[in-house]
Computed example of a mutant assay.
Amino acid sequence: MAAWQRHQAGGRRILIVSYHRVVNDFTGELQRSIPGLLISQETFRRHLEELGAAGYQFATMGEALDVMAGKRTTQKDLCVVTFDDGYRDVYRYAYPVLKELGVPAITYLPAALIGTEQRFNHDRLFHLLHRAVARGYQPRFDVLPGPTAQLLDTVLSGRMRVSAALDDFIGQYPTDTLVETIHALEERLGSGPDLLPEQGDLMNWDEVRRMVRDGFDFGAHTLGHRVLTHEPLATVEREVRESKAIIERETGITVRDFAYCNGWYSDELIRVLVRNGFRSAVTTEDMPNRIGGDPFTLKRKVLWENFSLGLGGEYSPSLTVCQMDDCFGMLGLRGPVPGRRPQLAETDSSNAVARPAGTPLEVNG
């Protein structure tokens, strides 16, 4: 299967893997966080070890792009390790493992949130919805904003799990609506420190600079984690340009790589990236990368803890290797969710954005 994949890819496989949060206590964190963002430090280490044992050579994004562009050759299949969002537990638990094993990596930062006490909108909504369920909240749907009422009804009725309902909600509405929903839920649930999640804190700039000094790279992931296909092009331009400028100012590096929030992109968005000096952008499309492929639609395999759990709930090396080698995709048992989406038109006054349902938040950036 690997030989066939190399042939299809044009000579060598270029696997890009993506993670979000690497945690010390997966079971404990699972009770209060979006499951698909989590992987334990032990499982993360085993992923790296087994990728190496399977014949992959770890590479920087720049090295992989050179191979894709035909500027250099490689005797081995390449693997690029990426992290989305800049969670502090990546610094705490992934960074030491990467250093120990000598594995390069790139982390995509939401530049305006780094060094603050803020939490991502998706983490805040997940936390508030769980609080609503735990408190037995009985909403008056007639006094709630329409999107908030829709989300609460879906969760409180039991029709969908919180993470699945939240996924569909984020896929439908732009950031301003998410913020409105957060405020509406906080107002109805009353004041108190438990309305802000303790977990999900982000790196500060000193931690980022320490990783830079150790040779790790960083890319941009907008200013505040906006799904840019939901936004007008003026907002897209600002998010791209200013996120790049902030990271460069704080670290002294040149930012050339970008990660699409939710993995969604458009031709218009790509043109903005090119105009602002980027050389690549990663999606969450779980497909092979091909020699000569578009560096602005790089495919990634987004991984979390349960991708490596066997039928008995234990870690399965065989299953992990099957995931890395895309055996299930080759057998037609799993298909990728496309990331290319229509760009919101400047004249579109609606705040709802149509898209196919079922793109799991757990495995998106």
Rank of each mutant, 00 (worst) to 15 (best):
G200H: 01
L129Y: 09
A184D: 09
H183Y: 13
V179M: 01
M160L: 15
Q118F: 08
S157C: 03
P193H: 09
R188H: 13
T175V: 03
T175I: 03
T148Q: 01
G171N: 13
A132C: 00
R159T: 13
P139Y: 04
T181N: 09
E117K: 14
P193F: 10
D201A: 12
L144W: 08
T181K: 02
A164D: 15
G158C: 07
M203T: 09
V179K: 05
D167T: 15
N121I: 00
L185P: 07
A184N: 09
P139K: 04
G192L: 11
L196M: 12
L166Y: 11
D168G: 15
D123P: 00
L185F: 10
D142M: 02
P147F: 02
D167R: 10
G190L: 07
L195H: 04
L156Y: 04
L202P: 03
Y137L: 11
D153M: 11
D194S: 12
R161E: 15
F169Y: 15
V162N: 04
P145Y: 04
L185G: 10
D168F: 00
V133R: 15
A134R: 14
P145I: 11
F120T: 00
E187W: 11
G192W: 07
L178I: 03
Q172E: 15
R188S: 15
H130E: 13
Y137G: 04
D167M: 02
P145A: 11
E186F: 00
L195M: 13
L129E: 08
L129R: 06
F120G: 06
V155R: 07
L202C: 09
L128K: 07
